[in-house]
Nucleic acid binder design. Structure first.
Length: 496
RNA sequence: GGUCCCAUCGUCUAGGGGUUAGGACACCGCCCUUUCACGGCGGCGGCAGGGGUUCGAAUCCCCUUGGGACUACCA
């Protein structure tokens, strides 16, 4: 371990507000949070808004909402405050400029007046010659008076880091160990842009140091930038934190990086699709990390206890949703009826099946329906279909085909429906037990197999062939709806 | 092209010199059963290839192959 020997672990999640919180970022935040919780450290949210061109106004809100939804609350950062602020990089510009200038003064960085046109042309030539890409150090050794002249003339400039021409830089990743990069493969990268904003390299190094970050957990697309960061730490005379690079998410088909083309990639989309945060968190947890045991169901708290950086894997992960779906069903089944109803309510309201706000009597009824559907839905979004025929006064009359099923005849089915309606009408109480007894007795009387009469009834009252248990369902539906729908179905068969 | 990372069932992975290579999801079959689910039981299925090292490699080393990342005044 090369990490700082600080007594407190301080980890930061540092998203760039250029879009909604990506599922990959969510996993990074999860691991950050877990490490902090596990060690009694601090979890810090820092907004890296140094790219004004790609800034998305709603992004910060979405990031905060998504983290909160997943239960990943931060100890320092926007809304939480903290001793190390500000936590928006756009509010720390003076800091970056100060250090950049210091590096220039120390001869470790320099002003570069190259225009983007020149840079573009340079790149084109490199490509044509299939030469290694990178800045050609055109401004690296500009005479002092020319620099002065250019600045007085108001020429736009950036500040570039002066990478030593020779030698190598050793970097260290907690998971991969030591990696060595030859300076010859590095170019003089920009640390301060011409608009006065820092690049990621400069800003993250300065902030991680100033905020006393002990562990940097980030995606492994940053591995290749590690030598730049180590060089920066060295130039600034600082000790680097411990680095943990997480494997990236590949598309489910195994080809290429996960992108929007492959379905949901934003945390909010998963929420909208009816996933529970518990399921998403559990799923993400095991995508790149493994406990030493066969356990695979973890609450956030349990995960915090079990978590360890050493057990994070390094190979790329295919983002396949099958297991997420399984987790979701699992967590849905674990919820109390009340809680499940609460979580389903917004989806029901959205589909117009329940009013908003929902009167308590209706909510109570909804709760009573939960045991019938709980183990039958995999996503919260399925609730409307599962429970719609209970909440609606009327349903669409089922088609004749559906009513008859595979081998029913019109005659027979009409008899079943009318007989059932007759018996049930005489029932004073609609209880599960009474219903079952009555219908089974009827089947016997009609000399039919129970199953033979159950299916037409099921279809008649729900319009569906896949439903909860018939007797539970009839009891929950109530006598009035049941009789009405049986008659409606009979009418369908009577027609023509 | 250059630099770097990675490589066990379809997927997530355990296993890190001697294992019948383990688990979960998915898939298939059976059971439970009024349908659908849930649940139970069982099955299918893997060490990318080639060289070493070793008495013995999934495990250590090298090469090949494959996949991926980066190659911006984006992060």
């Amino acid at each position: 371990m090369l990490g700082l020997s600080k007594d407190t672990v301080r980890v930061r999640f540092a998203p760039s507000p250029t879009g909604y919180l990506h599922i990959g970022g969510a996993r990074t935040a999860l691991y950050d949070w877990l490490l902090a919780k596990k060690t009694g450290g601090r979890f810090i949210l820092r907004i890296e808004d140094t790219d004004r061109n790609r800034f998305v106004p709603d992004a910060v809100q979405d990031i905060k909402d998504s983290l909160t939804w997943m239960g990943l609350t931060w100890d320092e950062g926007p809304d939480a405050g903290g001793e190390y602020g500000p936590y928006y990089q756009s509010e720390r510009l003076a800091l970056y400029q100060k250090y950049a200038e210091e590096l220039v003064k120390a001869g470790k960085a320099y002003y570069c007046f190259c225009t983007s046109e020149r840079l573009e042309e340079m790149r084109k030539k490199q490509e044509e010659a299939s030469a290694p890409s990178g800045y050609d150090r055109h401004c690296r050794d500009l005479p002092a008076d020319l620099i002065q002249k250019n600045r007085v003339a108001g020429l736009k400039y950036v500040i570039r880091f002066k990478v030593p021409r020779t030698g190598k830089t050793k970097v260290y990743d907690e998971l991969r160990g030591e990696m060595v990069f030859d300076h010859e493969t590095l170019d003089d990268f920009v640390i301060l842009k011409s608009d006065g904003f820092p690049t990621y390299h400069l800003a993250s190094v300065i902030d991680d140091h100033l905020m006393e970050i002990s562990h940097v957990i980030r995606g492994d697309e940053w591995i290749i930038s590690m030598p730049r960061h180590f060089l920066l730490y060295q130039a600034l005379g600082w000790e680097p934190p411990a680095f943990v690079h997480l494997p990236i998410f590949l598309s489910p088909d195994g080809k290429g990086k996960l992108s929007k083309r492959h379905g949901a990639t934003g945390v909010r989309e998963f929420k909208e699709k009816g996933y529970l945060p518990e399921a998403l968190v559990n799923f993400l947890l095991l995508l790149g990390w493994h406990p030493a045991t066969d356990e695979e169901v973890f609450t956030l708290e349990e995960a915090a206890t079990a978590f360890s950086v050493e057990r994070i894997s390094t190979s790329p992960v295919s983002f396949s949703l099958d297991k997420l779906d399984w987790y979701n069903g699992l967590y849905i089944r674990q919820l109390s009826h009340e809680e499940l109803a609460k979580r389903c309510l917004p989806y029901l309201q959205q589909d117009g099946l329940l009013p908003d706000p929902c009167p308590s009597a209706q909510f109570t009824y909804l709760v009573s329906l939960m045991p019938l559907v709980q183990e039958r839905i995999k996503y919260l979004t399925e609730i409307s279909e599962a429970v719609g025929y209970f909440l609606r006064d009327e349903i669409e009359p089922p088609s004749k085909e559906l009513l008859l099923g595979k081998k029913g005849t019109v005659e027979e089915t009409r008899v079943i429906l009318s007989e059932v309606a007759k018996v049930l009408a005489s029932l004073t109480e609609f209880t599960e037990e009474g219903l079952e007894q009555t219908l089974r007795a009827l089947a016997e009387k009609l000399q039919m197999k129970p199953g033979q009469i159950f299916m037409p009834v099921r279809v008649a009252v729900t319009g569906q062939t896949a439903t909860p248990g018939l007797f539970q369902l009839l009891a929950a539906l109530g006598k009035q709806k049941v009789i009405g729908r049986l008659k409606q179905a009979s009418a369908v068969l009577a027609a023509q």
